[in-house]
């Protein structure tokens, strides 16, 4: 999911300078799971913004904020409160914020930081495993992604910066290449360590990315040209 954290009230108020009436939007998906934009958080944020002198015309947890259809549907249920607001504050990811602004044609301020696509170990502990590079390499590295989990995204083996299996960048983090090596060793696949991996095709990461099914159904075996 998209791992998020709330922006500080100070940052939100700075963004809302000159804006009096706001509608607070959350999201039932990642933002709720990260305790950024669920029902509880919106109730709390409403109180804090009101204490800071803002008028909150309504709140709604969208299901989900990044889906235009779901946004339209929820907006209909909240038509009056949305109409009464000058702007929206969105407590969800940046895609959610921009989907709301574009779909509802109402200036939407970010209430959260979208940090990364991550794994949830438990509530409050998240880590990044996939950088959505668009060309998955997990097959070549025994299921451990060096693109994401090596701080330098190295594809041909480790740098000299690991110590006790940890990364030079952060001694709390595992060196992905030590993990990959040990996994290959365990599975008798060390030959894969010897294989030259050519420079990555980064074109699949050129932003802004878009993806459109050619015929409104997924392409056969998802084998579409990227």
């Amino acid at each position: 999911m998209i791992i998020q954290k709330q922006k500080s009230l100070e940052e939100i108020l700075k963004s809302l300078e000159g804006v009096q009436k706001v509608f607070l939007a959350g999201c039932a998906d990642c933002a709720t799971a990260c305790k950024v934009g669920g029902t509880e958080e919106l109730v709390e944020m409403k109180a804090r913004l009101e204490a800071a002198g803002k008028t909150v015309t309504g709140t709604a947890v969208f299901d989900t904020a990044c889906q235009q259809g779901a946004v339209r549907m929820k907006a209909r249920e909240n038509e009056a409160a949305l109409a009464a607001a000058d702007d929206i504050v969105c407590f969800a990811c940046g895609t959610g914020s921009q989907t709301l602004q574009e779909t509802l044609e109402k200036r939407t301020h970010p209430g959260a930081e979208s940090m990364f696509v991550g794994q949830v170990h438990r509530l409050g502990k998240y880590s990044e495993k996939c950088a959505t590079c668009g060309k998955c390499v997990l097959d070549r590295y025994e299921g451990i992604c060096p693109v994401t989990r090596c701080a330098k995204g190295l594809l041909n083996g480790p740098c000299g910066g690991y110590k006790n299996g940890k990364c030079e960048v952060d001694p709390e983090k595992d060196c992905a290449w030590v993990l990959i090596y040990k996994e290959m060793e365990k599975r008798g696949k060390l030959d894969k360590m010897r294989k030259f991996e050519p420079a990555k095709d980064q074109s699949a990461r050129h932003t802004p990315r878009a993806y459109v099914w050619p015929k409104r159904t997924p392409p056969p075996s998802q084998g579409a040209k990227s």
């Binding site: 083996g157 000299g160 690991y162 110590k163 030590v178 060390l190 010897r194």
Partner: peptide
């Protein structure tokens, strides 16, 4: 890095 605490991956990479 010859004195890496886990040197085998260094040697494999040197071969590459």
């Amino acid at each position: 890095t010859p004195c890496a605490d886990f040197v085998e991956p260094q040697i494999l990479k040197l071969e590459k």
